[in-house]
């Protein structure tokens, strides 16, 4: 499979009064055509900043991409002009956000906002655009599409609004969809429907999806590959089966253990002790060392590189797994899949 997006050494820093905060610190990954890649991690680990960096929407000031490259179809997006980025946004790479309740403009009709999305990228008449909008709304499972185009966001439920957002994201047939916690604000039954919808569109239109979430259940359900992020870094990546069956990084193991299992009788849910450190507060050593039960002296002194894990493409940033490949560095191989 060819990769459609390559992120190399990406660094996004926020310059604040309290110092420079590297929200995303030297991350490498790739997204293959038509796959669903999950990016998992706690709040503040840099998931959303990664996606905003790809879109070129990092709030500036205070944020800025300070290093690295984002290659989309042989074009480095970090060097693209604002005009070029506008052509890409919504047309080739589109995005769905977490809050369906606030992500649509309350003062414009659904039709108006969707037609706008079409007309920004294609020279079509308003009538044709409207026709396409209605079609697309039906595709995402909104039956009253003809009436809905004249309605305002406040007249729809959260689930319907998220479907409208999905319709908006897919209307120009993008090559990549970035979904930033698309189901977090929805209740469980609606969550499943929305995920199903995204998976369906991914399959039918061969759109690559980058699914950002903190919900491992969602990952297990739809993703083919998973990246686990912690404190601005990628600490483990593998295909979804490997992550769930033989996780390597103590943080990933902890994350998986803290998912409640209905078959087990446990009085207390497992939790990783301590709190997520502030990005930039750890200068040296493994960022997870302070919370890790298996940490040793070296973890506090040196930055662990990414080591090869079990399966194909499995990588883990932990000294405990140095022995697997006898300290074989894999940093170079990750960028050329």
């Amino acid at each position: 499979m060819t990769s459609i997006l390559q992120v190399k050494g990406l660094k996004t820093t926020f310059f604040t009064d309290e110092g420079n905060i590297p929200a995303v610190d030297d991350i490498d990954f790739h997204l293959d055509e038509g796959e669903i890649l999950g990016i998992v991690g706690e709040s503040g680990c840099g998931k959303s900043v990664t996606s905003l960096s790809i879109m070129g929407l990092v709030p500036n000031p205070p944020g800025k991409i300070t290093d690295g490259s984002i290659t989309f179809q042989e074009e480095d997006l970090t060097k693209a002009s604002e005009k070029r980025m506008r052509e890409i946004r919504g047309n080739e790479i589109s995005m769905i956000f977490q809050e369906p309740m606030t992500s649509l403009n309350p003062l414009f009709t659904i039709g108006n906002q969707l037609i706008e999305a079409v007309k920004l990228h294609e020279k079509v008449s308003k009538q044709k655009a409207l026709h396409r909008v209605i079609e697309m709304l039906k595709v995402v499972g909104l039956p009253r599409a003809e009436e809905m185009v004249n309605e305002y966001p406040h007249q729809l439920s959260g689930g319907m609004r998220q479907r409208v957002m999905i319709a908006m994201a897919f209307i120009c047939n993008p090559k990549i969809l970035i979904a930033d916690e698309p189901t977090t604000a929805l209740d469980v039954t609606i969550q499943a429907q929305i995920l199903h919808q995204m998976k369906e569109l991914n399959r039918k239109r061969n759109t690559a999806v980058m699914l950002i979430t903190h919900d491992l259940g969602v990952v297990a359900e739809v993703c083919t590959r998973v990246i686990v992020m912690y404190c601005g870094q990628i600490i483990e990546q593998a295909d979804v089966n490997t992550i769930f069956q033989s996780p390597k990084h103590p943080y990933t193991i902890g994350l998986l253990q803290s998912v409640p299992d209905i078959r087990e009788k446990r009085s207390r849910l497992f939790s990783i002790k301590g709190n997520v450190p502030k990005p930039g507060s750890i200068q040296k050593g493994c960022r997870f060392a302070g919370r890790c039960e298996q940490a040793h002296d070296r973890c506090f002194a040196e930055d662990p590189p990414l080591y090869k894990g079990d399966g194909q493409g499995h990588q883990v940033r932990c000294f405990l797994h140095e022995s697997i490949e006898e300290a074989h560095h894999v940093e170079d191989t990750i960028t050329s899949p």
Partner: peptide, 26 residues
């Protein structure tokens, strides 16, 4: 600062349109 402004930008809209259409009306 609101989410729908970010949505408008993610659609690929020009800042002028974002400011004078989506922001001003709100």
């Amino acid at each position: 600062k609101s989410d729908y402004i970010r949505t408008a930008r993610a659609k690929g809209m020009r800042m002028f349109g974002v400011v004078y259409k989506h922001s001003l009306k709100n």
